[in-house]
């Protein structure tokens, strides 16, 4: 939710009409992509356009609105990994939870790589499983729409509230949470 004064507005909130038009355009884009062949030039152009637009939005929405500088983020990440691997002294629930997430992600990537290397019919890769869905027009359109939503969330989500109308581009704090103001020790805004 965006926090403007005491009112809470949804993530990525903009004036209703432009938002509605943007949503309809995105839906039409996904429906159009759904009927394109995987190898067609139009399909490739559409995917590249989507990537370009999302990256552009990330850049436009993000100036001065990251919670940490990259160097501070790397330091925090290194400490978190050390904790998860048991090298740190923190045996908290958060560390144990992080370990389970790491194991799940490693299992997924590891088995996908194993299946890819083996190249056997009874060992499908993750992308082959997705391919079973994207072989259908509706499946390709739905999955493309979900992919677009994910990309926009990654590009615009979890920004510090901006000043003025710029806030409408970038989300801000999630529902029910106030954004924490990073101190100088956390690296400040980036």
């Amino acid at each position: 939710m965006l926090l403007r004064g005491r009112r809470r507005l949804p993530v990525g909130w903009v004036w209703p009409l432009p938002r509605l038009v943007a949503d309809l355009l995105a839906l039409a884009f996904a429906a159009w992509e759904g009927v394109q062949g995987r190898y067609s030039a139009a399909s490739h152009a559409g995917i590249l356009a989507a990537i370009g637009i999302v990256l552009l939005l990330a850049a436009l929405a993000g100036r001065g609105r990251q919670r940490k500088r990259s160097a501070a983020w790397v330091g925090d990440g290194t400490r978190a990994i050390a904790t998860v691997l048991g090298l740190g002294r923190d045996g908290s629930a958060a560390a144990r939870g992080g370990l389970v997430w790491a194991l799940l992600i490693a299992a997924t990537i590891g088995w996908d790589m194993t299946s890819f290397v083996e190249q056997k019919h009874d060992l499908p890769t993750l992308s082959r499983l997705f391919g079973a869905v994207t072989d259908h027009d509706w499946g390709r359109a739905l999955l493309f729409a979900a992919w677009l939503v994910l990309g926009l969330s990654l590009a615009l989500g979890r920004r510090l509230p901006g000043k003025g109308h710029g806030a409408a581009l970038g989300g801000g704090a999630p529902a029910g949470r106030r954004p924490s103001r990073p101190s100088r020790s956390q690296g400040g805004h980036a």
């Binding site: 995987r38 997705f130 994207t134």
Partner: peptide, 9 residues
């Protein structure tokens, strides 16, 4: 996205 939608999975 490129892999799933633009290449043969």
């Amino acid at each position: 996205g490129w892999h799933v939608f633009g290449q043969r999975p």
